[in-house]
């Protein structure tokens, strides 16, 4: 398991948070997702055999938000 932390900008309303959480959680291999509205962070644990941080960042970008930085950590 790895942990991806995405720094996202463009979250202006708490409903954006629901949308992002649902979208990232749907990705294959993603275990649990946490979206920090105020810090503009998306934190997700994922199985590195099924997906990677870049594809998670793409998912978020597809929804109309800008991913500023992506970091991956060993869990």
């Amino acid at each position: 398991m790895k942990r991806a932390i995405l720094q996202v900008s463009g979250m202006t309303c708490p409903s954006c948070l629901d949308t992002i959480r649902t979208a990232v959680a749907r990705q294959h291999g993603v275990q649990d997702v946490e979206v920090l509205f105020n810090a503009g962070k998306v934190k997700a644990n994922f199985d590195e055999r099924a997906t990677n941080a870049r594809s998670l960042a793409n998912t978020v970008e597809k929804m109309g938000y800008v991913v500023e930085r992506t970091t991956t950590k060993e869990n």
Partner: peptide, 11 residues
């Protein structure tokens, strides 16, 4: 539309 695909009714 993107939100709707995820079954989220957005503003």
């Amino acid at each position: 539309l993107v939100s709707l695909q995820l079954r989220v009714i957005s503003i």
